[in-house]
Amino acid sequence: MRIIKILLLLAIIPTLMLGAISCQTLQSLIGPQAKLEVIPAETFLSPALFKKPVTFKGSGFAPKEMISVEMVLPPGMKMKGLKEGEKDVGIAIGNADEKGNFTAAMKPIATLNWFFQVGWTPLLKPNFKEARPIPPGVYKINATGLDSDKVATSSLKIVPPPKKKK
């Protein structure tokens, strides 16, 4: 009977270890830790974001891999184009260089869709009448290496626009 127990343990322990090794969280700890910086870390929604978009700088990723930058939605927040239950939205993509560093800026369409939540006219023009800008708050930002599965996290603070001087 003892032998059976030992055999069982021999089967269960490697399985658990294999599972743990394939776990993304542990995997991201192997090698240099991935880091992410959001520039600027704090902003307000304005047309200036089209000229100077929110940008993401990262390091510690696998060389030459594609990076997906996502904004995590606070619980209960709804966003145009997202189904109920979707917890994040891709807002930028980048490619790591040989050293595993990357820089990615939000494209105008991403700023329009996910920050301003505009509508679109049949003329392919953004419709600001239908816009529902995301509320001020601190939004968690994740950057994920699509080969290494490494994840780096940072945050973006959206503040209310400054009050116009009378």
Binding site: S68, V69, G81, G90, M106, K107, A110, N113, W120
Partner: peptide, 15 residues
Amino acid sequence: IDTRYDVARAVSAYK
């Protein structure tokens, strides 16, 4: 998946 024609959203959805 409604990407709203945005590449970043599409890549994230594929991921």
